[in-house]
Nucleic acid binder design. Structure first.
Lengths: 205, 205, 205, 205
DNA sequence: TATGAATGAGACTTCATTCAT
DNA sequence: GATGAATGAAGTCTCATTCAT
């Protein structure tokens, strides 16, 4: 309600709150990933975020809102990843296969470094969040279809949305599957996935 | 694969009981599919099975056992499906691609006609059941790897388990994805999946 | 909380439940009277009824339902009291003043012997229950108006409903007021109330 | 009647503060009237007063103090009303009945124009405030008894306090009852109340 | 002094599970 | 065996109150 002139150092309360929100979201992502959405408790999330349950509810009206917020956060990041791939496409340098591989690698890296992402992806399909899941994937599929239009010209236009859907869902599933494996198996699964997609799509490039 | 008849489920001695157990499992499958595992209530399942919760607990020690039992039931059916595919392979008639397509079609049909199957598949990845999921998929992957050994001789032996895993997980994911779509999109996704797998694996046949 | 299973005489479970419901209602009435509706806790009520919170919720969907049930229970009893007064009126013996006094005495006795009644009457007007309160009082006023028609013929018909309302509300308020007083003051207030009403209504009899 | 200015409310030293306190009290009266004491939230009251809860707690140690303060404010006004009636009595002009009617009308007007008053009167009997209610009504009854001594000389001295109590409680109850009614019924109830009291007390004048 | 973010006790309610009948 | 009433742990969320800024 006030502006605050940001005097000297005084950490502005808005920044403090923002940091707290981040901490809560991180904690939620972690806990959701750990035990799943339903089994996660708001109290546990608050504890892990080193706050009180009251603070949590100051920012999020209910447990579900936490998952939505995390999902949104990640959806945005994945969107940015798409932006980069699209830029690459416009630059026109890479051949189709390489592009695909680069994109998947970026996704894998993202998946690996952001532990919360897995939480979301896994819970996305968790019944409660079917609509959200569908919406997000639909958006990614739409953008993938666009890219296909540019880099897989031989793919009949009518098949584009379906192929795009299969790509998105397959990558998503394989990422989850890979992340669950221990040892070398994970990366191997990712490699096979790239092979599979590349060989499938090559004739259309 | 198993020794004892599973300590989790008491095998009923009477025909009446057996029928009741079936009814309970059907009800559980239905309810899990409808609202998800966590949101399902044992009372609700008992009610839909036209029994009392007391009876339900006579046969199943807890809610989770219900899902396990359903999963088992379906795992067996999928196993039988594998048996048939293996017989086909031994008979030696079909080319590799056709075999793959037939197998997937059988799975799709099964998925479509058994509403409970979807419930399971969807909840399989639901954290609580990660181990079960892994075990089941590992078993299917093992058998798939065997089939690959026979019908995809050019695939290096070392890659077989990984490729088998990817096949199993991809088919599983695409089945779920397809079942969620309305209209023609579902079947189209299945078709593209078959294409994808066939083109990927063709060079190894 | 388990005591003895009531040996020998097998109490039919329906009767047991019924008794439990009664106990819960009595406890609720007591607690509501003691601390008011809002401050009362369902846990406290269950404890006082010597049951578990779960049992309470087996019979009543929420806290409010408890108050409604009690209110209903009492509304019925007051209704019966009206029945008796009406019978008296039909018998035609008593003069108007005596009738009024008898009715009020009956109400006072009821009020005194049923501690929960006060709880209800007091909480009736407690915002949440305004509609209920209004409905109940409207019903009593309606019946009072009828009686007035028979025993206060000189009262213009148009005023009857209003006069009936004032009677009902006054008696109700005075009963509460009287019940709050210690010593002789309570009964004295009741006596003055009777005087007041009798002298007011005498000219119309 | 009081010694210290109530330890419950800190008297503000500045004009701005005083205005703020008034605003808070108005807001509290409004909110209490709107949703009842328990359902009212301090945050909501502060918001409606265009301040922060921090400020609210600067002046009032707790929620209850708000109701007390409002009640006090109104008790003072009702006291002033009594002063005027007493002056009237001393002046000696009006006959007893007219005096009674005038006093009630003044109360009704007050009740109507001050929405907060109703909030208080209604919550007065709300358990938490039983003592306060009793104290206030006792004070009014005391003064009413005095007036009765002067203008109802035929009423035996011993009955005076009881009669005064009944008058106070009846008027209070009827005011509330009347204020709840829609249309003409409210004023009609007030009229009947006046009739009732006048006819009751006339013989003692 | 004003602000409002933070706190946390405690309320209501659900539901898996037990056990007397 | 079957039944379903009873149990109570545990979860989500609210809101009065505090306190650092």
């Amino acid at each position: 309600m006030k502006k605050k002139p940001t005097p000297d150092r005084r950490v502005p309360s808005q920044a403090r709150s923002l940091e707290r929100v981040e901490r809560i979201l991180d904690a939620a992502a972690f806990v959701f990933a750990e035990v799943g959405f339903e089994a996660a408790t708001t109290e546990g999330i608050a504890a892990r975020a080193d706050t009180s349950i009251g603070s949590l509810y100051q920012f999020f009206p209910n447990k579900r809102a936490l998952l939505y917020a995390i999902a949104q956060r990640y959806a945005e990041r994945v969107s940015e990843l798409f932006d980069r791939v699209e830029a690459e496409v416009l630059a026109g340098g890479q051949p189709f296969g390489a592009l695909l591989r680069t994109a998947i690698d970026a996704l894998v890296a993202f998946h690996a470094e952001e532990p919360g992402f897995r939480a979301i992806v896994r819970n996305w399909s968790s019944h409660e969040f079917a609509e959200f899941d569908e919406a997000a994937n639909a958006e990614f599929a739409r953008r993938t279809a666009q890219l296909l239009g540019k880099r897989a010209p031989k793919l009949p236009k009518a098949r584009r949305p379906v192929v795009a859907s299969v790509i998105v869902e397959t990558v998503s599933a394989m990422l989850i599957s890979a992340s669950r494996r221990k040892g070398k198996l994970g990366p191997q699964i990712v490699e096979e996935t790239k092979d599979m997609l590349e060989r499938w799509l090559a004739p259309y490039a």
